[in-house]
Design a protein around this nucleic acid. Structure first.
Length: 297
DNA sequence: ACATCCCCTTAGCC
DNA sequence: AGGCTAAGGGGAT
């Protein structure tokens, strides 16, 4: 299937979008990107303004790809709002066309609980292990792919079996969260209809979810584009690039030490929201990817 | 080879 | 309340 990109919605780069660290399920084989999105394998390639893709099993939902890749966002408008300084400008120039994706909330939540204190390659491995062990196999183009298991499936697994996927102490948190979602105690879709702060408050009650994980889930799967997740890279951005936006005593206090207290986290994160505006989450992702691949700072 | 540090942090204890 | 620390293990240097 072919899809012509709508130029008036601004640039799009499949490579930067799939490889910027927001997603853990994509791999490049030969010339194509393969990923599992909810219940299907997606094979996709970009030729300038054309996206060639195939889904397995096929879907009748013609908007599936546009929706997942947020092709409906007017990226020119987003970029014009977040380009506040030369750092952002560099990041945007370097990774022009990077877009956020609309992830499936359940998989997104579990993925970022697993992401706690882990590197991206390790996170990918954990998610792949969970899917291979407990998901549904889909064979496509001679390769085996696995869907991410549903809450009712994950909720029944023993902590020991989850740990064997390389989750370590995250296993119990994932398990409790799966049970809570399976019970219907929390309905992730409902959070889309709450404002950012109320939705975040609810997520903070979920095992394994602190401020950082909550902001990632809100940004990547619950339509809260003002969410501004603060990880080690964004902390570095705050202390090295944006120090003049904070008290020097604050910068001194958070420089060098490991994790931020909830209050410190909120100080840095709300700076991002205020400074970059309603699309702060886009700014975060550009900066994050830029700094992470810069290999310095 | 080998050590050391880092990793898209959270929870529990004081 | 806020500061300290433990918690898998792999990947990078």
């Amino acid at each position: 299937m072919e899809l012509e990109l709508n130029r008036s919605n601004g640039p799009f780069s499949l490579e930067h979008t799939l490889d910027c660290g927001q997603l853990f399920r994509w791999q490049k084989l030969n010339d194509w990107w393969y990923g599992v999105v909810t219940d299907r394998v997606v094979k996709i390639k970009q030729n300038n303004q054309t996206l060639c893709f195939q889904c397995f099993p096929e879907t009748k939902n013609h908007g599936f790809i546009e929706n997942y890749l947020r092709l409906d966002d007017n990226l020119n408008s987003v970029l014009s709002k977040i380009c506040k300084d030369s750092y952002m400008q560099k990041a945007v120039d370097r990774f022009c066309g990077l877009r956020l994706c609309r992830q499936e909330p359940w998989e997104c939540l579990i993925s970022y609980i697993c992401a706690t204190y882990k590197s991206i390659p390790a996170i990918k491995k954990m998610i792949a292990n969970i899917s291979r062990c407990f998901g549904k196999k889909l064979t496509f183009d001679g390769t085996n792919f696995y869907t991410f298991p549903k809450p009712n499936k994950l909720a029944q697994i023993s902590p020991k079996d989850l740990r064997s996927c390389g989750l370590g102490f995250r296993a119990e948190r994932v398990l409790k969260t799966a049970q809570l979602i399976d019970n219907g105690e929390l309905i992730l879709e409902d959070l889309k209809h709450l404002d950012y702060h109320k939705a975040k408050r609810k997520l903070l009650g979920v095992p394994g979810v602190g401020h950082k994980v909550a902001d990632c889930v809100l940004l990547f799967s619950l339509e809260k584009l003002e969410a501004f997740p603060i990880d080690v890279w964004m902390k570095r951005a705050a202390t090295k690039l944006y120090a003049n936006h904070f008290d020097s005593s604050f910068i001194q206090r958070i420089t060098g030490k490991g994790s931020l207290t909830p209050k410190e986290y909120e100080t840095v994160s709300s700076f991002g929201r205020d400074y970059f505006g309603e699309y702060a989450g886009y700014a975060q992702e550009y900066l994050f990817h830029y700094l992470r691949t810069l290999n310095q700072l």
